[in-house]
């Protein structure tokens, strides 16, 4: 019996350890992750506007690289910055909400500048919304 005890204890430690590891698993590091799709803001918007169901199936939860010109920048009371990219529409565009878990080189984007972001595509309400965005070159 004593012989098995140390194996049982060993297994227990591994079990608890891997359980804790799963529980405290960190969020995906967007900066270090590769974009799965790369599109312009106008293309993303078009895809969602023409067939939302198909676009959801194709893009939801994917890390998307998106490029476009800055149309609007806003900061909410918690200091979360959102950049709206022009998608060739008069009212709506592609909103990139900057990641709260990443240190950003800048949070100030002049309107009209061409920028590139990558982030997680979450779908479309009025605009297409990407969260956890980081700027790329």
């Amino acid at each position: 019996m004593k012989k098995y005890l140390k194996y049982i204890i060993g297994l227990l430690i591994i079990g608890i350890g891997s359980g804790a590891y799963m529980y405290y698993k960190p969020h995906q590091n967007i900066k270090a992750s590769k974009a799965e799709v790369s599109l312009s803001a106008a293309e993303v918007f078009q895809a969602f506007e023409s067939d939302e169901t198909a676009a959801n199936e194709e893009y939801l939860d994917k890390i998307m690289a998106v490029s476009g010109t800055v149309r609007d920048v806003s900061k909410n009371e918690e200091g979360i910055v959102s950049v709206t990219l022009d998608a060739g529409q008069d009212m709506f565009g592609v909103i990139c909400q900057l990641d709260q878990l990443t240190q950003h080189a800048r949070e100030d984007f002049p309107i009209g500048e061409k920028v590139n972001f990558k982030g997680v595509c979450t779908g479309m309400l009025m605009d297409v919304v990407l969260v956890r965005c980081v700027e790329t070159n």
């Binding site: 799963m22 529980y23 405290y24 995906q28 939801l60 979450t122 779908g123 309400l125 969260v131």
Partner: peptide, 29 residues
């Protein structure tokens, strides 16, 4: 932080919508 909301004051009608995947949790799991 990305919910949309429209309120028509005259009729009192309102609507809001939110993308489920845009909810951020403390723990990834």
């Amino acid at each position: 932080q990305k919910a949309t909301c429209v309120l028509d004051v005259a009729s009192g009608k309102m609507e809001f919508a939110v993308l489920v995947k845009a909810f951020q949790f403390e723990k990834a799991l």
